[in-house]
Nucleic acid binder design. Sequence first.
DNA 1: CATCTTATGCTCACGGAGAGTATAAATGGC
DNA 2: GCCATTTATACTCTCCGTGAGCATAAGATG
Lengths: 318, 318
Amino acid sequence: MARSPQKTSAQASGNAVTADLVAVLVAVTDGTPKIMTIAGGAALPSGPFEFTHRSLQTALRAWVEAQTGHPLGYVEQLYTFADRGRSGDAKSPHSVSISYLGLTREDRVGEGFEAHWSGWYDYFPWEDHRDGAPAFIAKTIAPKLKAWAKAAPSPTLQRERWQRCTITFGLEDRDWNEELVLQRYELLWEASLIPEANHSRGREASVAPGKPMTADHRRILATGIARLRAKIKYRPVVFELMPAEFTLLQLQRSVEALAGRLVHKQNFRRLIEQQELVEETGAMAADTVGRPAKLFRFRHGVLAERAVAGTKLPLSRT
Amino acid sequence: MARSPQKTSAQASGNAVTADLVAVLVAVTDGTPKIMTIAGGAALPSGPFEFTHRSLQTALRAWVEAQTGHPLGYVEQLYTFADRGRSGDAKSPHSVSISYLGLTREDRVGEGFEAHWSGWYDYFPWEDHRDGAPAFIAKTIAPKLKAWAKAAPSPTLQRERWQRCTITFGLEDRDWNEELVLQRYELLWEASLIPEANHSRGREASVAPGKPMTADHRRILATGIARLRAKIKYRPVVFELMPAEFTLLQLQRSVEALAGRLVHKQNFRRLIEQQELVEETGAMAADTVGRPAKLFRFRHGVLAERAVAGTKLPLSRT
DNA sequence: CATCTTATGCTCACGGAGAGTATAAATGGC
DNA sequence: GCCATTTATACTCTCCGTGAGCATAAGATG
């Protein structure tokens, strides 16, 4: 690669690092979004990048397949971290961590593998608003955030902090925005309500609910959830998480599971069908309560026909 | 970082790489979007990542400031490449390239610096549809794409190729989607119409217009343009590129310059004002032809008041 | 058969977006 | 001073996407 002289010399000065991959692998089963975890659910799957592969994506696919015994569907890069203090140990070699979001249909991990699936709301209980805002937000989190806001040095800063709280968490009758997953996590972190945020002070007593994770893995997961929640609105990626055949209600439940909120059933169906995203298989769903539903499959044609196919989410306020 | 045993050992096996930063730095002057380049316009600014900085963003900011003598406004990570063949030389040390998009108000590069500004449409002439689709698309590019499509082995593949062409370039009365910058570049690459795509064959005769760049820099630039074109529609990032005070027409021209297409003036103003993104300064523009326009400034308050402020672009079809 | 549950069809009202028309306020040329 | 030109700004109109509610159909279960 052609570089200007001073840069070439600088590059040769040997700032070697190691490259890691961290994966947020998502599946949805029975209306529960799950992520692949290792270490008893305390960490996202991660490992060193092997340069024997042609590209990062290839490396990730091969690696996931080796770990789970299943191929990976949709893959997308999330973010690259190179923060110095990230590894915790200042003496350790510098590490660049490249995180990916991966979607898969299979919920099954092959036997003998360390990995297994965990519900993503175990780590982010405050992100599930399908039955309305969780009660503990108003009861526990909001007061603590208010206390944190009041602890700001000046009245102006106090107001700004509290405004930020109401916006990100949808407090005081504001709309809850399901995409602000990372912002909410960061806010709780700053307010010292996240166990990972122990700034080497001993107090772990009053924290938000939810399982913690190693290092910054929960933060990476938040990034992945946010990305996916944004993506399902304008790209037909939900289908990567569905079985080959599904009913419209199952599809809706998956979308709701990811978004963390409910959608209007009739409007949802109208949108899906008018966009010609699915086609009937002819078969009907068995083993159901109530009127049997038609089975549909994803029309793969849309990927070629359209540049941007939108799965617009009709969000309801109930 | 806690890892499972087999991973820890794998990590210690020493797959060291070097970390590079590549920056797409954007400014807009007089309705022309510009990017910072080095090597006489043949490369994007890039250099090794110094681990003396706390994070990648800090490193990039410091580095850009050292290169141009000006601070950087909005910064966003674009993509990380680790492809093996990327450096061209298989023997060279593996390199991870982390690319960033940066927006700045200043169009001025300090004296004595190698960097300077180039219009981004010099590299992507087919991306400027402000005066309608450029004539050479129908005259030159479309026929070559058609020939490429016809060269596919089967009739089905031929149809699929041509459909892809019509979608990405908006041929045959399809709508042109300004966000598909990367897809268009990749299509031209596959059709061997990009000089960089010389698969060590000698033919460079019939290629698309536009200045080439070193290595995959033009591809990175395409990624940056696409990201920015998408972003201006739902985040008020245009203001990062504007001077402190501006008229609504200047703002509109900047948006149009970035989007590569025109917007409806009255609707544009309606959207900007109803979203309360700007406030009057009280002053009027001087040195103008026609009726003098009010000067506005960006209301920084919106960043705090709203979670997602949208600069929705009213796109016109003329 | 009554009831429950889910599927599916239909309608209505509101608001946002695209687009057109009209008027106001400045400049420069004659 | 008058006119053409250029830009700013106000107003209106229509279409359609979207949120929301109502109604009916089709199965299971007691």
